[in-house]
Design a protein around this nucleic acid. Structure first.
Length: 554
RNA sequence: GGCCAGUUGGUGAAGUGGCUUAACACACUGCCCUUUCACGGCAGCAUUCACGGAUUCGAAUUCCGUACUGGUCACCA
């Protein structure tokens, strides 16, 4: 009996060889230096911001070098799989214009290196495992979970390193006859990789972010194929897929760093050249309770999920910029210097990436987003809010559509000028900032509209002002008229004059403006009053003053 | 616990032996502008780079130790 017999017994129907697959998936014909990257999520239906970071980096790396960015569905753990997970991932990627060059679900972009769904690659994995068994680098292991658990406890008690290695790798020393016998008897088994490392020896490799890393060589005989569904574990799928799909750069979270010696051992067992590794820092968050940094968690932190940014209505570009800033902190500077360039043109450098965990700063995001929205045209803002409202606020959406011209005018307040107003943080925040413009919201509930204001005096004066109000072509003319109105009612035309001798006046022009602002908007703080008046118009102005009077007289 | 990595202001960070009396951005504070808010302008915000020691004419930058934080040690990725 030889290892060949064992391999044939385990995989009787596998007849393709490694060479066959090498021919089927040849080296990619790309320009010198082109990078092939992949985004390889497991279909849990949840897009973590850390995953997104790696997707963005993958994308930039590929685009930057005229390479290929592909999507691979890592669905080897069928117990965690969620329905439609991949389509929701695709949706997020496309929201941010991160279209994979290759993936399974669309004919025109289906690449030549598929299938891109791991559960459909079983045969390929089996061929590779079969080869490993034949050359004596893999073996079936019949240990039950219970015995392994027990062994681990014993190791802990003896203060030994835990795991399946050395003398603890019990099934490693089974003879081929014994192995065949057990398989024929139907004993369940996993396939383990026969490691070649020595834990006492140092293994040195270069990570593109972290630089040179020294780790112990791998001496663990890790499972590479599961017993129940015969699918590979992550480690083995990584080897087979990234080799056959000709990935040049593997971008993943730093939680994988310590398994690199295993992965490289795996690559070497086939004589393959391992890809370059880019282990990116985890995205952290300050824990409220302990004050310590901790990995951002999908259960506790709403901002861990990419869906948060969509619900809040952050413009996609703002999110990209915030993410790119984590990737390389000089991104903002670069983008300011090259405003016409796309983020994919950014010369991302793994070396420049911080190697410690980064906080994703929501305040910074707000700032980026604010600046970004301030640079948009009124139409762009309108479309942004509208498409957000379509999904999340049907009522507001209706107002936007029914009163489109007015809405455009609102969004244009203090916009078409050198330094545009910056007060919209994201699409979801806009409604509350502009609601008073819309009659339905303004007149909905007197108490609510005026709840935050102390009483405004001089309502009669405002009424009189309203009767003289007309459409002024410029702000200057409006304010001149306002000053004139102030003077005829013994108000100073400027606060300075009033302050010089308050006894001469009833007040100053600003006080009238303030009163007016409060009465017609229900707020103390608003944008430019002239532009608000221009949008509302004389009739509405008078109506609102009357509304206020009814409110205080009731 | 073993192994690995990280530690620069409130935050993200630049910085790889002298040009650093530590860049930039966010946040914060004060003043100015101003009919409110926002914008904008000006000013302030780490005499110091977790701590201790060593190397050096010279260290945030090199080395050693300590502390703290994170990662990893699954038939999960």
């Amino acid at each position: 009996m030889t290892s060949k017999d064992l391999a044939d017994l385990i995989f009787p129907n596998i007849d393709k060889t490694i060479e066959d697959y090498e021919k089927m998936y040849p080296e990619r014909d790309l320009e010198e230096g082109a990078k092939v990257t992949r985004f390889a999520p497991s279909p849990t239906g949840f897009m973590h911001i850390g995953n997104f970071l790696s997707a963005v980096i993958d994308y930039v790396l590929a685009k930057n070098s005229k390479g290929v960015f592909y999507l691979r569905n890592e669905d080897t753990d069928k117990t965690r799989e969620v329905e439609n997970a991949v389509s929701s991932i695709m949706k997020i990627l496309s929201t941010y214009d991160l279209y994979p060059d290759e993936y399974e679900f669309q004919e025109e972009t289906k690449g030549n290196y598929g299938p891109y769904i791991q559960s459909e690659r079983k045969e390929i994995y089996h061929a590779f495992i079969k080869h490993l068994i034949e050359i004596g680098r893999a073996y079936p292991c019949f240990c039950t979970r219970e015995t392994l658990e027990e062994q681990r406890k014993n190791q802990e008690m003896d203060k030994e390193r835990t795991g399946y290695y050395g003398d603890y790798a019990f099934c490693r020393s089974l003879t081929i006859e014994e192995q065949i016998e057990k398989i024929k008897a139907g004993v369940p088994y996993v396939i383990r990789f026969k490691s070649s490392g020595d834990f006492e020896k140092k293994f040195i490799f270069d990570d593109l972010v972290k630089g040179r890393i020294e780790l112990p060589e791998n001496d663990q005989d890790v499972p590479i194929m599961k017993s129940d569904n015969q699918l590979p574990t992550y480690h083995f799928a990584h080897l087979v897929d990234d080799h056959l799909m000709r990935t040049t750069h593997v971008v993943r979270g730093e939680e994988w760093l310590s398994s690199v010696p295993l992965h490289i051992d795996l690559f070497r067992s086939f004589g393959f050249r391992p890809p370059k590794y880019i282990h990116i820092p985890l995205i952290m968050k300050k824990d409220e309770e302990t004050g310590n940094a901790r990995k951002i968690s999908k259960r506790k932190d709403k901002e861990a999920s990419m869906s948060y940014y969509e619900e809040k209505g952050y413009p996609t570009y703002a999110v990209i910029e915030a993410i790119m800033t984590i990737a390389n902190s000089n991104y903002e500077e670069w983008h300011q210097a090259h405003p016409e360039k796309d983020f994919t043109d950014f010369p991302f450098s793994p070396k420049k990436m911080s190697s410690s965990g980064a906080y994703f700063d929501l305040e910074k995001l707000d700032n980026i987003s604010k600046n970004y929205i301030s640079r948009l045209t009124k139409e762009e803002v309108y479309n942004g809010v509208l498409s957000w409202a379509k999904k999340y606020d049907a009522d507001f959406c209706k107002h936007l559509e029914d009163e489109k011209e007015k809405s455009l005018a609102i969004f244009n307040i203090e916009r078409e000028q050198k330094k545009p107003r910056k007060d919209y943080i994201n699409w979801s925040s806009i409604k509350s900032q502009v609601s008073y413009f819309y009659e339905d919201y303004f007149y909905e509930d007197k108490e609510k509209t005026y709840q935050e204001l102390e009483e405004v005096e001089n309502v009669e004066l405002l009424k009189e002002y309203a009767s003289t109000y007309q459409d002024y072509p410029t702000e200057n003319e409006w304010f001149e008229a306002m000053k004139q109105f102030a003077i005829t009612h013994q108000f100073a035309p400027s606060p300075k004059m009033y302050q010089e001798d308050p006894t001469l006046y009833q007040g100053h022009v600003g006080m009238i403006c303030e009163a007016l602002r409060r009465v017609i908007t229900g707020r103390k703080e608003t944008p430019n009053l002239f532009q608000i008046l221009a949008i509302l118009g004389k009739d509405e102005l008078q109506k609102r003053i009357q509304f206020y009077q009814d409110y205080i007289n009731q």
